[in-house]
Design a protein around this nucleic acid. Structure first.
Lengths: 127, 127
DNA sequence: TAAAATAACAGTAACAATTACTATTATTTA
DNA sequence: TAAATAATAGTAATTGTTACTGTTATTTTA
């Protein structure tokens, strides 16, 4: 059972994720929430981020830097990681689900999906 | 400077990576090498795996479980992670570099490449 | 071939990201 | 409004990985 109860802290975390496109880490979320909830604990941030991901209200992203990033935009979309400044951006592109067919062609198991991360230089670093 | 010298331990690690298709973690490599080199240290395994990756003699894989995996097959190829048993397999498929074009179409930065991980059920778990 | 130079080692300590624990506080239910 | 209990803050523990240190092995060169 263990019903999920409302908490101001979790709501603030949720709102912060929805307000930004920066794909923050738990640490960054923590630092921002602290402005409003001075006494919030980093453990609370981690626990609630995990909860939000479980509930489908946030995505956990692996951006290749060994640290978890989080995204309040749960619609399926692709990400880009800049090798220059380390920023993570959304890509505005059509789904490429056809690659699942390509992968499944010579494979006896079942392809259920894919995780893709594009990398290169962001518009700023390109200059 | 700092020429790279031969060492039995590194050679054993390299050979082990070449001998398996299981994409082992550092821990797994350590446990296997220990059979032959009883006194080898986990730190040595990590240092040499990093060295091999730097030298282009091995690949570091991110399989979505938060732990680094290593692959002695450095030819470009794609990987599959089973959601059932957690195994990681090679996929025999054509390169899908065209997705870089798709991603770059509406993007001002520079797409240099992509990291893809397919997931689903392996042949065994599918049954 | 033997000794000097130094890279690699084993073992251990440190580190950073994350999770677990515990007593207290807040939300919900009746 | 009070009892029940989920969530919190604060802290300790865990895990994967890297750094450090004194010792050992490989290489160079005399």
């Amino acid at each position: 059972m263990a019903a999920i109860r409302y908490s101001k802290q979790r709501e603030a975390i949720r709102m912060y994720l929805l307000s930004t496109k920066s794909h923050p880490t738990a640490e960054v979320v923590y630092n921002n929430i602290k402005n409003e909830y001075t006494r919030i604990s980093l453990g609370t941030v981690y626990r609630n981020l995990n909860l939000l991901v479980e509930q489908g209200e946030a995505l956990r992203l692996d951006c290749g830097d060994g640290v978890d990033h989080f995204d309040g935009d749960t619609r399926p979309h692709y990400h880009f990681a800049c090798q220059g400044c380390g920023c993570v951006m959304d890509l505005d592109m059509d789904p490429i689900d056809h690659i699942d067919q390509i992968a499944g062609a010579g494979f006896d198991g079942e392809i259920q999906g894919h995780r893709v991360l594009f990398y290169g230089l962001c518009p700023n670093c390109k200059k």
